[in-house]
């Protein structure tokens, strides 16, 4: 996946300006930067979540396997099945059980066979490192779980539809340190199967989990490179100022 000269307008203001970012397959790409720098706006442009907001306008291209996801005739529903998303706050569906939450995406494509659903639920929950904790109570309501468990439900739910790319918008910012650790450990395993783009407020987190890092400031991408290089030897002085904690 990659973007070419991507610009996102909110009304007349550009929240993201001219970003060209390559997202490497089976790697974790972290987007860092101060609040309001456009990293979340950029992330949501990757699976056309902005389509839900009529005042947003997109220019430039987002290529998925070489095809522009914004090309005329492309169905955003199909794009979102291929590019999943995990949000800042856990979003379990409160009327559904743990099991139904995880297989919600499969129900959408009309899969009904009990065995198949169970198999996918188990695989997804194992991938989200939650299986052992919930395997005996799959039919309990998902809202009864802790915040960290709920976020892993959200991840399992996103994984169940086998997306090619998983977008994560500050997935640990609402969680305690132990849950955060669990999810960070998970990311390392997940990247074997799926390409990950993660927005994070937390520079240590970006440094710990990602392979590449992009630094955003005021809607522009200032610098992009291998995480280790960007954190130890930033090319741009603004990147250096940010990662050394002089602002943000």
């Amino acid at each position: 996946m990659e973007t070419e000269n991507l610009t996102v307008y909110y009304g007349k203001n550009a929240g993201v300006r001219g970003v060209s970012l390559p997202v490497y397959d089976r790697k974790i790409t972290a987007l860092i930067g101060p609040s309001g720098c456009g990293k979340t706006t950029f992330l949501r442009a990757l699976n056309r979540m902005h389509d839900l907001n009529p005042i947003v306008r997109i220019e430039g291209r987002v290529l998925l396997d070489g095809e522009d996801v914004y090309a005329p005739g492309v169905d955003p529903v199909v794009i979102r099945r291929r590019v999943g998303m995990v949000f800042q706050r856990p979003t379990p569906f409160p009327t559904m059980s743990i099991f139904e939450n995880v297989v919600a995406g499969l129900r959408l494509v009309g899969i009904r066979e009990r065995d198949r659903l169970r198999e996918v639920a188990e695989r997804s929950l194992k991938a989200a490192a939650l299986w052992d904790e919930v395997k005996d109570r799959l039919n309990d309501p998902a809202v009864g779980l802790s915040g960290g468990q709920q976020q892993r439900i959200s991840i399992a739910r996103a994984l169940a539809v086998e997306p090619e790319v998983l977008l994560m918008d500050e997935p640990t910012s609402a969680l305690d340190p132990i849950s955060t650790q669990a999810i960070e450990d998970l990311l390392g395993e997940l990247k074997e199967q799926v390409t990950i783009v993660i927005v994070t407020h937390n520079m240590q987190q970006a440094a710990r989990v990602s392979d590449r890092t992009a630094f955003f400031l005021d809607g522009e991408m200032i610098e992009f490179g291998p995480t280790e290089r960007l954190f130890t030897n930033p090319a741009d002085e603004r990147t250096e100022a940010y990662i050394t904690g002089r602002f943000g």
């Binding site: 529903v77 009327t95 919600a104 959408l108 539809v161």
Partner: peptide
């Protein structure tokens, strides 16, 4: 957030209404 979570799974507008909004 509830609606977006369902959209992000590849739901159409009606599916979001039926599976998330109405419940």
């Amino acid at each position: 957030s509830q609606r977006e979570a369902m959209y992000a799974l590849g739901a159409t507008r009606w599916e979001v209404v039926r599976r998330v909004v109405l419940p």
